[in-house]
Amino acid sequence: MEQLTFQALQSYLALKYKEGRSSSGLFMKLVEEIGEVAEVLNQQEGRKSPSTDTSLEKELVDVIHYSVAIASINGIDLSKAIIEKDRQAAIKYNQSPNLEEFLLRN
C-alpha cells in the first residue's frame, strides 16, 4: 500500500465532494462523528454501557475525513496550515523542535 499524504487525501476528497456538499453540510457530519467519538470514549471509560458496534479507530477516521473534506472544498492546504500553526504555537509556548524542524530531522 502506498503512503497516504494530506495532499493525496485532500485531492481525493475535493474530487469526491466537488458537487453536492457544502461546508456546512460537511460540518454537520463532522459534529455527528465527534459525538460518536464521545460515545465510544464514554463506553470505554465505563460511563456508558456498550450499545453499538463502533470502534474508536473508525470514528476517528470519520472525524479526519470530514475535517479534511471541509478544508479541501475551501482550498485550504492542510499541510501548510498545520506546519504554520505549529510554528506559531512553538514560538508562543517556547517549544522545540517545532513540526517543521522535526520533519527535516527525520
Rank of each mutant, 00 (worst) to 15 (best):
M1Q: 10
M1A: 09
L4E: 05
T5P: 03
T5C: 06
Q7M: 11
Q7P: 04
Q7N: 09
Q10V: 03
Q10E: 03
L13V: 08
L13K: 01
L13A: 06
L13F: 12
L15Q: 13
G20D: 04
S23R: 15
G25K: 07
G25M: 05
L26D: 01
F27V: 06
M28K: 12
K29R: 11
V31H: 12
V31A: 11
G35Q: 09
E39G: 07
Q43W: 11
Q44K: 12
E45C: 07
E45D: 02
E45G: 06
K48C: 05
P50I: 14
S51N: 09
S51G: 14
D53A: 15
T54N: 10
E57N: 08
E57C: 07
L60Y: 05
L60G: 03
D62L: 06
V63F: 07
I64L: 14
H65I: 07
Y66W: 15
Y66F: 14
Y66T: 06
Y66P: 02
A69S: 14
A71L: 08
G75Q: 12
I76Q: 10
I76M: 11
I76N: 08
L78E: 01
A81D: 11
A81K: 10
A81T: 09
I82L: 00
D86Q: 02
D86W: 02
I91G: 00
Y93L: 03
Y93M: 04
Q95W: 01
S96F: 15
N98K: 00
N98H: 00
N98V: 00
E100Q: 07
E100P: 02
E101L: 02
L104T: 10
R105W: 11
N106S: 12
